[in-house]
Every structure is written in structure tokens, then in C-alpha cells.
């Protein structure tokens, strides 16, 4: 509930005005929601979960979805190619991991030289994370074999020794860690705490026609982030809400693990849009061949909603 007594969902979806908003399952985004009162109170948007990035992107490009938590470089590329979408806020920071087998001897990234590492796709931000670690540890292109795998298949691939390591967004790292056969080699929290992965992207017509809706969306995403960071109990509550079948459909224990071990595995407190960070991400995307030419910041970012943001106070229903 908000202070105005209205029911609001966070981040990955909501409903009120037939405004579909999409998010990835199990991906790291702030979530404060429960379905119990969804019918009773007005919502900002309807939550739609997509099982893959391409599907989500296509729905967004086609205008079927008006707002989505999307990979930042994907939004850059779409905006540069004339699709009317803009980043209006971040979804979270950090939240990517490099996982290896528990008994594997690797101590640093350099030990992965000549090994096989799974990434979700070469267009994923996790790929940039891997490349950043490669550069930091003196590995060159060709020193690692990158295998593209759907994140849900990665734990099994590691267990079967089909790959030596994998890089992905949570909770697919925590999954293998919780099951006891894998350990974290790197977390973005340790080496790249300001890591940006998912951003809140909105279509231009929504910005033009219903700026107040976009503002509410941003206000509530910020509020959710702030709320998550104010108390460890909030993270537990969020895990319970997000584990619902209609949300992420992952077990409560798994999301709790991601939320709490450690508490800054994924962070939601600082969702500011910082130009220098986006420019760096753009440069890294260019370097990773995710995009094919430099894309100016204002092509894909609309800062106005962050500037006028007033995070609402959130008190989700007691569980």
C-alpha cells in the first residue's frame, strides 16, 4: 500500500490502465507485490512475465508492451535504431555472478584461461562483466571459450561438467550454490558494485500521452528500492512476495538466498541515472560488439522522471 492507500506493485508489473509491463522471470529487479489485494485496489500496470529477452524485446518493439525491465544495451540499440523507447530509471545494481564447481581449484579469473564459460548470450550484460574480468586478469579474446546457454540450463551444465564456469544474473547462480555443488568465484558486488543490468524502459508514446503514469511508475520503483534497503526483514518479505507463481515462480528459499547472502548481492538503493556510467557501459558494449556504433546518452535516456521523482512510502501487506 502506498500512503494514499493505493495498492502498487513494484518494478516488474502492475495493472490499472491496461498498460502491460514486462519483466524477466527470476531476474534481479525490485519486487514488492502480492496478488491478494490486486483485485481490490487500482494498480499502475499489469504485470506480464516473459521467459526470454527476445520475446520481451519484440513485444516492446511492436508496442504491445509499454514499459519493461530490459537489458540496458538492448534499450540503447533499439533507441539508436529508431524504436521509440527510453530508459527512465534503473532496476537494480549488481546482481551478476561467476559460478564454478565447489571443488574446482580456481582462485582467480586468470585460472579460467583455456576453460569454457557459459554466458546467457553475447548481447547480455553478463558478457560485458566477463570481458571486464578478462581484461583485469590479462586474458585475451580466445583465451576463454564462451558458450551461450539459457540461464536456467546453466546449473545443470555446470553439474554435468559441460562448462567450467558460468556468468549470469541471479537467481541462477544462487540455485547451484544452494544445491551445494557450486561456489561463487566473483560477484559484481566485489568487483563492479555499480554494475547496471536491467533498466526501466518505457515507450515514447507513454511518456508523451501519460507522463503522470510514467512518473508514478518511477516513483514506485524508487520507493521499492528504498524500502528494500531499509530493513533486512523487507528483503525477506520481498522474497516471499516474488516467489509467488504469478511473479518469478522461484522458491522462496532461493530468492531469500539471493536477497540475503550477502545483503548487497543485489542492490536497489541507488537507482540514479548517471551519465558517466551509461557512457562507460555504452563503450563496453561497443567493445563487446553488442552495439555497432557509439550511441549518445540522450538518444536512449529520459532523465526528467528521475529529476521529479518523489518516492512514495511503501508498506506491503503483512504476509
Amino acid at each position: 500500500m502506498t500512503t494514499e492507500g493505493k495498492r502498487i506493485d513494484m518494478a516488474q508489473g502492475m495493472d490499472m490502465s491496461g498498460l502491460p509491463m514486462a519483466g524477466m522471470p527470476g531476474m534481479t529487479a525490485p519486487t514488492v507485490d502480492a496478488d491478494s489485494i490486486a483485485a481490490r485496489v487500482p494498480q499502475i500496470a499489469r504485470y506480464v512475465r516473459y521467459s526470454g529477452w527476445p520475446e520481451l524485446k519484440e513485444a516492446m518493439v511492436a508496442g504491445k508492451v509499454k514499459a519493461a525491465m530490459m537489458l540496458a544495451p538492448m534499450v540503447m540499440d533499439l533507441a539508436a535504431k529508431g524504436v521509440p523507447v527510453k530508459v527512465v530509471a534503473l532496476g537494480h545494481r549488481s546482481g551478476a555472478v561467476i559460478m564454478v564447481r565447489k571443488e574446482a581449484p580456481y582462485k582467480s579469473f586468470a585460472d579460467l584461461k583455456g576453460k569454457r564459460i557459459a554466458i546467457p548470450s553475447r548481447f547480455a550484460v553478463d558478457h560485458i562483466f566477463v570481458r571486464k574480468l578478462m581484461a583485469a586478469h590479462g586474458l585475451k579474446d580466445g583465451d576463454l571459450t564462451m558458450v551461450e546457454l539459457a540461464p536456467p540450463d546453466m546449473p545443470a551444465a555446470l553439474l554435468a561438467d559441460a562448462v567450467d564456469a558460468y556468468a549470469t544474473g541471479e537467481p541462477f547462480g544462487a540455485k547451484a550454490e544452494m544445491d551445494g555443488y557450486a561456489r561463487v568465484l566473483y560477484m559484481t558486488r566485489d568487483v563492479w558494485p555499480t554494475y547496471i543490468c536491467c533498466v526501466l524502459a518505457v515507450r515514447q508514446e507513454l511518456i508523451d500521452q501519460q507522463p503522470e503514469t510514467v512518473q508514478r511508475l518511477v516513483d514506485h520503483v524508487l520507493a521499492a528500492g528504498r524500502w528494500l534497503e531499509t530493513s533486512p526483514e523487507h528483503r525477506t518479505t520481498a522474497a516471499r512476495i516474488a516467489s509467488d507463481r504469478s511473479m518469478f515462480n522461484q522458491t522462496f528459499e532461493l530468492i531469500k538466498w539471493v536477497m540475503e547472502r550477502p545483503p548487497d548481492r543485489v542492490t536497489y538503493g541507488d537507482l540514479r541515472l548517471i551519465r558517466a556510467e551509461f557512457d562507460e557501459l555504452m563503450r563496453l558494449s561497443l567493445d563487446a560488439k553488442i552495439i555497432d556504433r557509439p550511441i549518445p546518452y540522450h538518444t536512449y535516456v529520459d532523465e526528467s522522471f528521475m529529476k521529479h521523482a518523489h518516492p512514495v512510502v511503501i508498506s506491503p501487506p503483512a504476509q
Binding site: R116, A118, V147, L149, A150, A156, A157, A160, A162, V163
Partner: peptide
């Protein structure tokens, strides 16, 4: 079958 394929035959 993909998860089983990966388990049995790896990524090859």
C-alpha cells in the same frame, strides 16, 4: 529435452 541433452551430452 534440452536440459537432459546438456546433462548427457554436454554443450557440444
Amino acid at each position: 529435452w534440452i536440459p537432459l541433452a546438456i546433462l548427457w551430452f554436454g554443450v557440444s
